[in-house]
Simulated assay, not measured.
Amino acid sequence: MAEDSAAHPTDGTQTGSLEPLELLYEEEGQPCFGLPPPLATAYHGDLGFTPPCVYANFVTSIDGVVALGPEYPSSGSAISGREPADRFVMGLLRACADAVLIGAGTLRATPRHRWTPDHVCPQAAPDFAELRRSLGRATQPELVVVTASGDLPTEHPALQSGALVATTLDGTRRLDGRLPPACPVLTTSEGSTVRMIDILAALHAHGHTAVLTEGGPHLIGNLLGEGLLDELFLTTSPVLAGRADTARPGLISGLELLPKQPAWMDLISARRRNSYLFLRYRLRLSDARVGARSAVAI
């Protein structure tokens, strides 16, 4: 989940000031972009994706909580403890992407956030920009907000800066005249739900073949339900969140996999910084489609 970095303005430092991650394991033969040297040093290795690719990035507590509930805005920051290494990895994954895909709930839960690489790790902004130039990417990844209902905080700064809003016909009608001029609308369905395959097809048609999603759990459930998620980056934060009367979701909502239809993943990379783990998984080819299911309202 995204973290709000408003309390962490740039301090004028550079990527080289970041303590490098410790490499624990890396599967051989992975694609490599050829990261600029400062990024490769901080990440402790190269990074790349075979297009088209949909990859997710989440931070979770040890007990599997990814969000603290609607009464705790920007709860990803609380879960991660605003760990600089987590913010760097988040920025790096955004810098690799053509588009960043989020659900309306994630937008509402992070009221000041902007889904750009430099927002979470401003000291690496020049190196992120160099990476995007080398990959032929636009200056910033396109933000794509998915909403079935059209219930969006239209004053959100991320929308004011410009984002593609993917919604249903009903959502389009609800948003008519309310969105900033910089927000085009992609109407994907006449029903009450959205299909992720239609959204990704539209993104691919615009040349967006590397798509990062930062949630939320319902959106991940939709992607898995349609067999569209390829990889998962998971930061395990050394904290226990606990659960009582507040709904505190795990990584996936709206979709049951075990015991009948497990979606197994293979660990292809592991890094650490102190007690934080940075894990990368690839969905097994045999589980690339966990079965067609009805889309979940977002």
Rank of each mutant, 00 (worst) to 15 (best):
P52D: 09
A85D: 04
I62E: 04
A85F: 02
H44L: 12
G12L: 04
S77K: 12
V66Y: 11
A7D: 15
A104K: 01
V145H: 06
T13I: 03
Q14L: 13
L24V: 13
A42S: 13
I102P: 01
V54K: 00
M90E: 11
L101E: 02
D86I: 02
I62S: 14
L39Y: 02
S80R: 04
I79G: 01
E130N: 06
L39P: 00
C96F: 03
G103I: 06
H8A: 15
L107T: 10
A40C: 02
V59A: 11
Q123L: 13
P9I: 14
T15Q: 03
E26Y: 03
M90D: 07
I102N: 03
L35I: 07
R87T: 05
L107F: 03
T139W: 09
I102A: 02
G48C: 05
P141K: 04
T10E: 13
D11E: 15
G48L: 01
E142M: 14
P36L: 07
I79N: 06
V54Q: 01
P126H: 05
D11G: 12
A7W: 13
G81I: 14
W115I: 02
E22Y: 11
T41N: 14
Y43K: 00
S61W: 06
A95Y: 00
A67E: 11
L24E: 13
A129C: 08
G103F: 03
L92Q: 01
L135D: 03
